[in-house]
Amino acid sequence: MIKRLMAVDGVMAVCHFRDDGALVEGYGMPAGEQLVGLAKFAHDYKRMVQGNADQLAMFTQVNGWTPPGGWIVRGPAMAVCSVGNMVCVMDNNSGSLNEVMQELAEAARW
């Protein structure tokens, strides 16, 4: 199912990871090991963002931050975006961040 995310403009790779960081399914990276690395990174980063959002909620006593819905790390040419247990790598110049996030959110509900 997640293969169809590869059809979204700008998406270079996509993967679905388990709660322990293991790769469930992935496309777009040249080697299998890179997809495993992307899954592990996304899992670890999700956990870190979650930890920081929890602390923000704890210190501000405002609940609107947790649990976090997703995250984006944006570089000059590429971005890594994640929602739930889905993550994708995108090319900033050929894709729309809004569209990718919307598709990811939908895919995360499957």
Binding site: N52, Q55, L56, M58, F59, T60
Partner: peptide, 13 residues
């Protein structure tokens, strides 16, 4: 940077 956020939050609370 994260420790600064924690220190600020901790001291405020």
């Amino acid at each position: 940077s994260i420790a600064s956020m924690q220190a600020r939050g901790w001291e405020n609370m």
